[in-house]
Design a binder for these strands. Structure first.
Lengths: 131, 131
DNA sequence: ATTAAATGCTATAGACATGTATCATTTATG
DNA sequence: CATAAATGATACATGTCTATAGCATTTAAT
């Protein structure tokens, strides 16, 4: 009943990096700071690089920096490249189709909850998160 | 970003059974009605029996019936024996501990959302679900 | 009695997310 | 130039949820 580890790690990484936006951070450094398993962290960083949120520099003093302003990255953007936002567009009770003729009583409640959550996720940027 | 299949199946089964509360239903019958994989359905029924929501009768005309009034079974009760309600008592972003000194901006939003969801889940009984 | 149809129980398989390991390539430093 | 330290890429291992399979036991119907 939450997002995946990959999403969580991605959020942690980008959140942490956004605190010192222009600082080049290596995987090793982030590993020490965030306690994310090193090889997994590497994978996530690779993914975030491919998805153009950050850019990498190789070699001895290599690492990662943002490739776009943190104000322009919303939580929804990040979730979208990991779990996918559509992971919210489903029945909270996990029904493919509502097993009742009429929608069940959770339907409306969850629909509202979900809409408001998505709204917040879209409106909240990495910059907001650390304010 | 939803509850597990086991929870979903449990809810489907009990919801469907609650429509005809006093009817004995076999696993085969429920399988045909709900399109849940038969062996998995069997497992879930066994679990629901162990947890005393329903009781089983064996033999040729065996099956399952409620062992308590459907008004007394809340959605929260069901989730509690599958995923566990505590699966909601976590940070939506998946952080074990908030990586920020102060709680992040999602913290309060999710806390409120979660509380209201739990409230609904606790207040909604199987009887309500099919009204 | 015998058979059919149901649950009780439990072991095994599959799929997917999570986590690990390894080698190649790049670049700064001495 | 040699080395150290970083990323690139990819294969492999583990764990957990989901799904399947099989046999034993119980009971109704013939």
């Amino acid at each position: 009943m939450n997002f995946s580890k990959t999403t969580s790690y991605s959020l942690s990484i980008l959140s942490y990096m956004s605190i010192n936006e222009d600082t080049n951070m290596s995987a090793k450094y982030l590993h020490n700071k965030l306690s994310i398993p090193y090889p997994y962290l590497r994978q996530v960083l690779t993914n975030l690089t491919h998805k153009r949120f950050i850019k990498s520099t190789r070699g001895r003093t290599g690492g990662f920096t943002f490739s776009m302003p943190k104000e322009k990255i919303s939580l929804a953007d990040i979730i979208d490249i990991t779990d996918g936002l559509e992971s919210l567009n489903i029945c909270i009770l996990g029904f493919n189709k509502c097993p009742f003729d009429k929608q069940c009583s959770m339907h409306e409640v969850w629909e509202k909850t979900r809409d408001s959550m998505i709204k917040v996720l879209k409106e909240t940027s990495l910059a907001d998160l650390t304010k």
